[in-house]
Design a protein around this nucleic acid. Sequence first.
RNA 1: GCGCCCUUAGCUCAGAUGGAUAGAGCAACAGCCUUCUAAGCUGUGGGUCGGUGGUUCGAGUCCACCAGGGCGCGCCA
Length: 599
Amino acid sequence: MTKPDIAAARREENIFAALREEIIAALVGQLPDLPAETLARIDVGPAREAAHGDATTNAAMVVAKAARAAPQAIAARLAGAFDGSALIARAEVAGPGFINLHLHADALRAVVGAVLRLGEAYGDCDLGQARAVNVEYVSANPTGPMHVGHCRGAVVGDVLANLLGKAGFVVTKEYYINDAGAQVAALAWASYWRYLQALGADLSAEDFDPQVPGGLQYQGDYLVAVGQTLADAHGASLAGPGVSVADPAVWFDIVREHAIARLMQGVREDLDLLGVRHDVFSSERALVEAGAADAAIGRLEAAGLIYEGVLEPPRGKLAEDWEPRAQTLFRATGFGDDVDRPLRKSDGSNTYFANDIAYHNDKMARGAALMIDVWGADHGGYVSRMQAAVRALSGEPGRLEVVLCQIVHVLREGVPVRMSKRAGSFITLRDMIEEVGRDAVRFTMVTRKSDAQMEFDLAAAVAQTKDNPVFYVQYAHARCRSVLRAAAAAGVVADAGAQLGSLAAEPELAVVRRLASWPRTVEGAAAAREPHRIAFYLYDLASDFHALWNRGRDEATMRFLQADHPTETAARVALVEAVATVIRSGLAVLGVAPVEEMR
RNA sequence: GCGCCCUUAGCUCAGAUGGAUAGAGCAACAGCCUUCUAAGCUGUGGGUCGGUGGUUCGAGUCCACCAGGGCGCGCCA
C-alpha cells in the first residue's frame, strides 16, 4: 500500500472523523452562514448506551444559538439529510437535541478490515502535522540514584512522547543534565570524602563536615563506589599528605567530572531498565561554558526586558531574614507571571533560571516548534516564569507547555513504604523495577491523570487479577494470541478481506465499536497531553474482549473457531487479530510488552 | 499571607474539552468451568460529584467565595 493509500484509508476508517465531515457538510448545506468557530465545537462520539445507536452528535445544540433556532428543530431537519449515506443507516433526534446515529453494520464492521490492513498504524493521525516537538523529561540531577519521585515523570514523559509521535509530531526525547551549580559542587565534596575513605582515611561524616563549604551532603552509600573508582584511577594523587584534604584546585574539577560521569551512567542504566531512551542529553555546564546564558540574557536586554531592581518581600513567611537587595531582574510580569524574576545573584553569577532560559533558547534554536517539559509538582511555582521567558524570547504564548506530575506514595499492601535497601531514605527506581517489573511500573504510572496524586501499591502491581490493569490487558492479548495459534493450527489465518457480515452479536459489535474509537482516543489523548487515556482505553478494550470470550463458554456457537462454519470462523479470527493488533499498538505507546502466553 | 494542583460509591480511580438516567475495579452478595486459558465472565446492592452561590436550554466539567489535603513562595537546582 502506498503512502497516499494509507492516508486515505486512515481517513476512511476513522469512522467518527468521517461521520463528523458528513454531518458538517449536511449542516452547512442547510445553514450556510455558520461561523467556523461554531462548527469546530461539533463533536461526534460513541454513544454511551446501545439504545442510542452507534454514534451521537451534539451538532444541533452547538449550532442552535448561531442559527437562532431551537436545537430540536435543527436536529430534525438535519436527521433527514442522510438518505443514501454510505455510513448512516438511520438518524433520530433524542433528548434536548442529540442526533443518534445508527450506522450500516457493514460500515461499522469495515473497521476490522482497516485494522488488519493498517496494522499498528491504525489509530495514527496527523494532529501534529510533522511539527517538531521536544519533550524533556526525567532530567534528574546527577547526584544520586533515581527514585520513585523521578519514575512517574520518566514514564509520563516517555509515553507522552510516544503518543505524540503516533499523532503525527516529530518528537525529540531529551534529558537536561543539571551539572552546573551548587549541587554538583556538593556532590564533588561528598565523592572526595568517599575517595579519602577508599584510600584508608578514618574519616567520619562528622569529622569531614566542617571542612566542606556549605556542609557535607549526599551521605548515602551510593557514593562509596565512586570513591573507590576514583582511588583506582588516581591512586593517592588527589589527596594531601597523609591522606588529608588537598587544595581543591588540585582535585575538584577531576572529582566532579568523575562523579557526574559515574552517576549519569547509573541514571542511564536505571532508565534503560525502565525502557526509557532519550535521543538527546543536554549539559547545563556545556551551555554555560559556551556563554549561552549571557547570550540569552543579552537578547532579553536588547528587548528592554531587563533591569536592576529590588523585589518586594514575600508576605507572610520568611519575612524576618529578608533584606532588600538590588538584583538583575527579568520583566516576567509583562508575560503573565506574578512577579519579576532574578537572573543574577548578588555575586554576579547567573541564577538557575538564567541558565534555564538559555537552555530553552537553545532547544528552540535546535528547531523545537513546541517544547513540552515534564516536571515534578515541587516545580509548580516555576512554570509561569519559564513560560514568560520563552514567550518573551519567541513571541509565542504556547511555545512551552509544562506537564506537572504530582507525588507518588508507594505502598505495599496498603502500608506506606519509605525505606530503600540501597539508598536508605528513599525507595529507588531499581528496587521498584526489581520488585514488580518494568511493565507493571510503566503501566501503573499512567493509570492516573498526572496532575493528581497517586498511590502505587507494589503488591497490587503484581497481582494477577482484573484489579491490576497491566495483567488484565496482557491477559486479553495472550488470549487473542491463543485463539490465533489454534486458528493457525486449523489452517485459518486472519485476512483483511474476510467476509465480516456474520459479526452481528452484541458482544461482537461492542468490540467492533471499541476498535472504531481507537483513532479518536489517540487524537484526544495527544491533544490533551494525557497519556493515561491510552491505558484506560486498553482496559476497556480488554474488558470487551474478555466478555466476548466468555460468551463462548455459555454458548458453543459463540466460540471463535467453528469447524463447520468457515465464514463465521474467518470473520471472528479477523476480529481477534484486530483486537490483538490494537492492544499491541496501545501497549507500544505505553512501552509495555505484549504477552504471547500466560500460563 | 499569596500562587498552583487536588476533593466523584466504604476503598483506588475514570468521566473525551458544557450534554441524555454520573461509570469501572476492589470490597459485599448471588450465579457460570466435560469447552479457544475460570488469572476470566454475568447479575444485585452502593452517590447531595467537598460546600454555597452564579453563568444557560443544560454544570461533575466554566466563574466567584468558603472548607479540607498537597506543592511552592528574592542570590536551591
